[in-house]
């Protein structure tokens, strides 16, 4: 393996040489995204309520995690130019010069092949096929095409992040019924309001990098409207599992209450001016001073959001909690053996 090095600017010693460590290669795999993927895939696997050998279940989850990491590495290779221009991503290993782009690409390809082949041979080829489709969709369709081409990038591309539950379900049962796809639909519809809420308060970063996110192309007002519209579709879809024999009373409570909060926050964003004001931070600084108190609380690299942008940030933060709570409820019901509701029958 090559030994890429980088000069890290430092307050005390400006010539500190930093050598790539194994942790830098691990960072290429986007561990935080990977953890969410593993969680939703595990929920899909257990929600199927079909016994699977614990070791094979663990291998399936491992394959999904490795596949997610592989697509993350391919994304970091291809998007290194964009990542270098954005505050949120410029500390990643490739734009930092810690890992060469070719190495990231190689890691991504090798891990993709390994995860799909292992999934096919150890579990079943339906799960392997779905995993392969997810990797290709994220790395090629989203990263290389949609992301730089259309403001609908995260809407269509969101399918890649939505598929893990059906992969998990297919791993456990060998088939992919409608309830598995309902979990996919929930994540698919959740993605736009989640990412657009984020993009409302970092849209200048996307504009600088030339990424056509919705606030950059259509403006903040249209983005706030789209967030509300997607939320109005998302909430009933999140309630659907209690009609189809997937979710029980616990899920109904979480989905109902969480949905109300989600809708309230989306309405607040819609009525706000979030995203209208330009990011006032100087280009060379990670922290802009918005007042003594906030400046004291802030740390380099941490975002400080003021005014109506707070509504967007609140929605972004709650959206993560909401999705986690929905899947945690399904997971808990499956683990505890709680009966699912079938309100349609």
């Amino acid at each position: 393996m090559a030994q890429p090095t980088v000069l890290i600017p430092d307050d005390e010693a400006t010539d500190t040489v930093r050598h790539a460590r194994w942790q830098d290669y691990f960072q290429l795999m986007k561990p935080r995204v990977m953890s969410l993927v593993v969680f939703t895939a595990l929920t899909g696997m257990l929600a199927a309520r079909t016994p699977i050998h614990p070791l094979l279940g663990a291998v399936a989850v491992l394959c999904i995690a490795i596949g997610a990491g592989a697509s993350g590495a391919l994304n970091m290779w291809y998007d290194a130019d964009i990542d270098a221009k954005m505050r949120r991503t410029r500390g990643r290993p490739v734009p930092m010069g810690l890992v060469k782009g070719e190495e990231a690409a190689t890691l991504g390809v090798v891990l993709s092949l390994l995860s799909v082949m292992l999934m096919g041979m150890a579990i079943n080829w339906l799960a392997a096929g779905l995993l392969a489709f997810t990797i290709v969709f994220y790395a090629v369709v989203y990263t290389m095409w949609l992301k730089r081409w259309t403001a609908q990038n995260i809407v269509i591309g969101g399918l890649a992040g939505a598929l893990p539950p059906v992969i998990g379900w297919a791993a456990a049962t060998g088939h992919a019924p409608l309830n598995a796809w309902l979990m996919v639909l929930i994540i698919f519809l959740w993605t736009p309001p989640h990412f657009w809420a984020l993009s409302l308060y970092i849209s200048t970063d996307y504009a600088k990098a030339g990424v056509p996110m919705l606030p950059v192309v259509k403006g903040a007002r249209e983005t706030r409207k789209q967030i509300l519209l997607y939320t109005l579709v998302l909430i009933p879809v999140c309630l659907a599992p209690v009609f189809t024999g997937l979710g029980g009373w616990l899920y109904l409570a979480v989905s109902g209450l969480g949905g109300l909060v989600f809708l309230t926050l989306a309405l607040r964003v819609f009525r706000s001016t979030a995203g209208d004001a330009a990011d006032p931070r100087p280009a060379d600084r990670d922290l802009y001073e918005v007042g003594e108190a906030e400046a004291k609380r802030g740390k380099p690299g941490q975002r400080v959001v003021v005014g109506d942008a707070k509504h967007a940030r609140n929605l972004f933060a709650f959206s993560i909690l909401y999705l986690f709570a929905l899947f945690a409820a399904l997971l808990a019901e499956a683990v505890l053996g709680l009966k699912a509701l079938e309100l349609l029958s």
Binding site: M1, T5, V17, H19, A20
Partner: peptide
């Protein structure tokens, strides 16, 4: 440090 980092990666 370069050797140490490479060793860590190889392990």
């Amino acid at each position: 440090p370069a050797t140490k980092a490479r060793s860590g990666r190889n392990i």
